[in-house]
Design a protein around this nucleic acid. Sequence first.
DNA 1: TCCCTAGTGTACTATTTGGTAAGAAATACA
DNA 2: TGTATTTCTTACCAAATAGTACACTAGGGA
Lengths: 195, 195
Amino acid sequence: MAIGRPRKFDLDAALDAAVKVFWHKGYEGTSLPDLTAAMGINRPSLYAAFGNKETLFRKAVDRYIEGPASHVQRALAAPTAREVVQQLWSGSIKLITDSDGPRGCFLVQAALVCGSSADSLRRDMAVRRASLVKILAQRFEQAVAAGDLPNHLVADDLARYVVTVSHGMAVQAAGGATQAELRRVAELALQAWPA
Amino acid sequence: MAIGRPRKFDLDAALDAAVKVFWHKGYEGTSLPDLTAAMGINRPSLYAAFGNKETLFRKAVDRYIEGPASHVQRALAAPTAREVVQQLWSGSIKLITDSDGPRGCFLVQAALVCGSSADSLRRDMAVRRASLVKILAQRFEQAVAAGDLPNHLVADDLARYVVTVSHGMAVQAAGGATQAELRRVAELALQAWPA
DNA sequence: TCCCTAGTGTACTATTTGGTAAGAAATACA
DNA sequence: TGTATTTCTTACCAAATAGTACACTAGGGA
């Protein structure tokens, strides 16, 4: 088994705590005391377990995607493209307005802009956001092939629209928009759905 | 006239430079050396002319709204609600993808989240974003009264939808989306327009 | 029982942060 | 020319930042 003094804290629980802090305050707005306080560990333990602030952030991103934001993957499995989007939006709305977690979307707000020293992180987040567009576009192409969406439709454009609404709602949520308000936005946004 | 040693730099030009830095790196990502370098002045001059980092940021916000983002006010004057939105979106797309300025929207990205010390700034930005929803809703109510929009329509909801798309596009732009891509998004988003 | 290993806790470091004191310099006015 | 007033420049400060050295401690294996 494990040799040496056993770790006194739970890795996943600590990472979850870090996710929440970064999500709430952003990468640059989060200090190490913020992190250690929330994670319930001291600095050297943090460095031993997670590397440094940047690598901890990267692990937090992964955990966010696999945990709180896992509804995205589930939504992709919906039978029709329209249902994919409905599930994506309703899941996102729940996530970004949930009183258990910080308001807004981690991927949108944790490093949307930053000083030069964190620029690679910023680009990384942009790539991750862009990958949602890609994956949705693929799903829509499938749907076109299946006759579920009209032939003339450009999957890329529709995907970008869907993600744009999603991220726009995240900004709204970060600013205090309510779940009901966002549901009405989503309802309206769905009016643009191709016939 | 002015008594004492004359100021060696132009206030407005310096403020414009500060706007760009905050817009590009965000409030917390911007350091005083970043500012003084971009503004071409040294620190005490900055403090004498603009107060401190926070008040400089607030002045930068005002200047952004009156300058680069002045298309919003102009759009409101369009004859129909639909044209208001078209002008708003096309103007925003130009602004947030313009190669002259930083990508994205100052109001969205400069202080979307932050550490506790800048929280009042964060709230302020949220209020400013929300005021766009309000002002658009008023414009749409006018439009309903004028028969330009259907009676059953909830102006608040439509306004929030329009702003959501706008801010979503800003996030896209910050991540590198092109002007052409965003124009197609706007076109799609307009399909949701009430008949 | 006694090491060996890994984790914890305290205290430290170098650097960067926002902010300022104090004197030199440039102009208007008497 | 001299003085009052404002700005500029250099140098500094205290606090906060991310990151680490080192001694101590808790458990597993022989």
